[in-house]
Nucleic acid binder design. Structure first.
Lengths: 242, 242
DNA sequence: CATTTTAGGAAACTCGGCGTTCTCTAACGA
DNA sequence: TCGTTAGAGAACGCCGAGTTTCCTAAAATG
């Protein structure tokens, strides 16, 4: 029984919520540092100065732990911005999503999808947590725009509500870089705003489809204009906070 | 198969391409059966009746093997459908993507994303292979529509080319079910066709239809020059070590 | 056809993480 | 104060990644 030099089990022991928080925090850090695929339970335990047994006492698997950890840092969908005009709301909404994706939550998202087949119930959870939220906020924002008379009610059709989030996720998942703000502006100006000002196409519709008199949609601001115009409003490039 | 394991080393031995094909085929099957996360090199080797050494002689890791296997069953982007009208082309294009995603390629896509952080170079590969292809085909189809006079050239703006694929991937990644054809039709009719037609804004709102200044949307850069992504050398697929 | 060269098969091996279980003890509660 | 709960830490068996060794089948060469 040769007592090792640092054999002391004298550390102040955390229990309950304090321990849980430490573990979740460590999980987020490991996630941000190594990504999902390289995240190990042992790594989390060591970083949190906890034992693996403590982890398994609460979470049955890596994926449940990660989901739980990520859930605690997602923005709550309750507060939906209201700038008084559709474009401003959309910009705020997408910027928020972009910021969330650029953090550890995005890293988790990447990896959790890969385990969808073995654990279908997890996939359902991811979907309800991340996707439902985005569509809900889009629905609210467009509803307001319709109420304001800014856009026609028919323009708010099912799949359209997903377009913005889908484009952001698409960029994020397939590129490692964080989402540049210029992409957000581009999505809003070249896709979302025109789309929500336009009623959907009806294949059996009257008048023949592409035959309408084409009045150009309103072209908001230049979306990626590099021209050195001095009067350019680049306000949104600075409004990274929020 | 017929050879008993006690009968050592009497099986007819495959070499070169025959062996490679057997391994890739086995990889696809394992992928479809267990998903990416549960795919093991040992499992692939056993199913292909090959040795792990034979795998590692050609592929340095699980992810490179999977990427190579998937690459061989992706539809070649060269043959792009031409139905004579934009809507028909879009339907064919998206249906093809939907079919691809519903197979083992989709399963691989899910899992490979989770390894993006540890292996950034893999992420670049996935991007150039799956995303670049989709955008390329979209670009071709819309180019034809413009040439036909079906849609205005200004309607073909950067981010719009990704909308269709992004929506499909979005659905696929967050729901386990295969993509229903109704979704494809919905995307085409409520999102893509209106978007590429940039149809007129109908001031149907009572009292104060928005009367903004209409500058036509201008095409920024030739879209076919965007995102060629310099890493086109497919060096790794010929990873002949030794 | 005989011999050399190349490359695949099987199995053993190391290494590291998973998930479990054990002992010991700090923290808590009555 | 004393029992109860729960966390720390270590050890364990297991499995798959990736490597290596030995042997031999298949191709290349004459």
């Amino acid at each position: 029984m040769s007592a090792e030099s640092t054999d002391h089990r004298k550390r102040p022991r955390r229990r309950g919520e304090a321990l849980v928080n430490a573990i979740l925090e460590a999980t987020i850090e490991e996630l941000a540092e190594h990504g999902y695929a390289a995240l190990t339970m042992e790594g989390v335990a060591e970083r949190a100065r906890a034992s693996k047994a403590s982890l398994y006492r609460r979470w049955t698997s890596r994926s449940t732990l990660v989901m739980d950890a990520v859930y605690h840092l997602l923005p709550h969908p309750s507060d939906i911005p209201d700038t008084g005009e559709l474009r401003g709301d959309l910009l705020l909404l997408l910027r928020r999503t972009a910021r969330t994706l650029s953090g550890p939550a995005g890293e988790a998202l990447r990896g959790l999808l890969g385990e969808a087949l073995p654990y279908p119930e997890h996939a359902a959870e991811i979907r309800s947590r991340s996707q439902g939220m985005g569509r809900q906020m889009m629905a609210e924002v467009t509803r307001r725009a319709v109420a304001r008379g800014e856009i026609p009610a028919e323009a708010v059709a099912g799949a359209r509500l997903d377009v913005g989030q889908a484009l952001l996720r698409n960029h994020f998942l397939f590129r490692l870089e964080p989402i540049p703000d210029s992409l957000v502006v581009e999505i809003v100006d070249t896709v979302l705003v025109p789309l929500f000002h336009t009623p959907p196409y009806e294949p059996s519709g009257p008048g023949g489809a592409p035959e309408q008199e084409r009045e150009p949609v309103r072209a908001p601001e230049p979306w990626w204009d590099r021209e050195p115009e001095p009067g350019q409003d680049r306000e949104w490039e600075r409004s990274r906070e929020r």
